[in-house]
């Protein structure tokens, strides 16, 4: 799957959880999910579960530690997709 496609689907998943819609409008791979998009840290787990469902992958909880930016999520998902 192309990186751009994964990116778009990741952003679509994160959108309902993002409190900062202005940051969402200018989202890039470097955008920090918690600090910039203001996704509640307690809801990050729902975001990751949505990634699992959307892409048919399984994400270990230690992998979640590596997800800080949108780009991190894209890289993680692509690595799981093989």
């Amino acid at each position: 799957m192309q990186e751009s496609e994964v990116f778009q689907r990741v952003v679509k998943i994160i959108s309902p959880f993002a409190k900062n819609q202005a940051a969402l409008a200018g989202v890039s791979p470097g955008t920090h999910i918690l600090d910039e998009l203001k996704v509640n840290s307690a809801r990050l787990v729902d975001v990751v579960l949505a990634f699992e469902d959307e892409f048919g992958i399984e994400i270990a909880d230690e992998d979640v530690d590596e997800v800080n930016t949108v780009g991190d999520a894209v890289r993680l998902i692509r690595s799981k997709l093989g």
């Binding site: 699992e52 399984e58 909880d61 979640v64």
Partner: peptide, 8 residues
């Protein structure tokens, strides 16, 4: 379950 779902 496994992964994150197990922890949850």
């Amino acid at each position: 379950a496994s992964g994150l779902r197990r922890s949850l």
